[in-house]
Design a protein around this nucleic acid. Structure first.
Length: 277
DNA sequence: AGCCAGGTTGCGG
DNA sequence: CCGCAACATGGC
């Protein structure tokens, strides 16, 4: 079915939202829109001003939640510091929204994302979905379920070019498929608790756990400290070394929506450095 | 060609 | 707790 969904204050910048490195299985459609998978279902979406024209079997509320269309971006921007890099980033990508992805999809994405660049992450996940994900529309594959990946072997996934991530993915898939790790327990209501529990999965360290907290669990204060964020922190606080200290520094710097601010800075720095994907 | 990439792990101090 | 090397591979 087709629907038009209007974004809350701040509008929507769909290209930035889908292209800023928080999700990796969206493709530009011929009409200038995007096609992809949201919560396991196919979704065609095109921006029309401050609204999204969508075609999907998903109910409207699921799509609104996926794109966080109810977030009041103007209110969030108002909490940001007046620092120059962030002001530039916000003016350049006004309307970019943190999205709220399915937990397992998000885990798969960011376990694969470790120590790889964004174009390569696209390729790895595309190969994974083609090989192990159900075809849910013409040419469009869903993410593989935990059960499907649990049946694979490390060398099966290695053949897809995942490198050492293959072993982590199979191990974590088995933890979930065999009931030792309960996805339904998230979110718990406490950011620290969610973050710590995610660390027990193979291939999930503090940074991946923060990506999941921010991009799936809705913890807008979660700050994934990757190489780009680390560089920005070390320009301002060269003495900081520990992951948790750098995260706390960014939360202190950017405020209660630090995860949102971090994403604007991340995308700004990366595109400024010449990256286009 | 060589460095870098949305890091994590397992080791020794 | 800390620092550090190994890890597998492709993009640029």
């Amino acid at each position: 079915m087709q629907t038009v969904l209007h974004a809350n204050r701040g509008g929507i910048d769909l290209d930035a939202t889908l292209g800023c490195g928080q999700t990796f299985q969206w493709y530009r459609a011929i009409d200038g829109g995007w096609k992809g998978v949201a919560d396991g279902a196919p979704l065609l979406v095109r921006q029309e001003g401050d609204a999204l024209r969508c075609e999907s079997p998903l109910p409207e509320e699921r799509i609104r939640r996926y794109f966080r269309l109810n977030d009041d971006l103007e209110a969030i921007y108002a909490t940001f510091p007046k620092d120059e890099p962030l002001r530039d980033a916000v003016s350049q990508f006004r309307g970019m929204r943190i999205i709220q992805q399915d937990l397992w999809e998000c885990l798969v994405s960011f376990i694969c994302a470790t120590n790889a660049n964004i174009p390569r992450i696209h390729g790895m996940i595309a190969a994974l979905c083609r090989a192990y994900g159900a075809e849910i529309a013409y040419g469009l594959h869903a993410y593989p379920t935990p059960e499907a990946l649990a049946r694979a072997t490390e060398s099966d996934l290695g053949a897809l070019g995942l490198g050492y991530r293959a072993a982590y993915l199979v191990e974590s898939a088995r933890e979930v498929a065999e009931g030792r790790f309960d996805l339904q327990a998230f979110p718990s209501g406490d950011y620290r608790s969610d973050h710590q529990r995610l660390l027990s999965l193979a291939g999930v360290g503090p940074k991946v756990a923060d990506c999941v907290c921010l991009f799936s669990l809705g913890w807008l204060k979660a700050v994934p400290v990757d190489t780009w964020v680390r560089r920005m922190v070390q320009e301002r606080a060269p003495s900081l070394k520990r992951y948790s200290d750098m995260g706390d520094f960014v939360r202190d710097w950017l405020g209660p929506f630090a995860g949102y601010g971090q994403q604007y800075l991340f995308h700004y720095e990366r595109t400024r450095a010449g990256r286009t994907c």
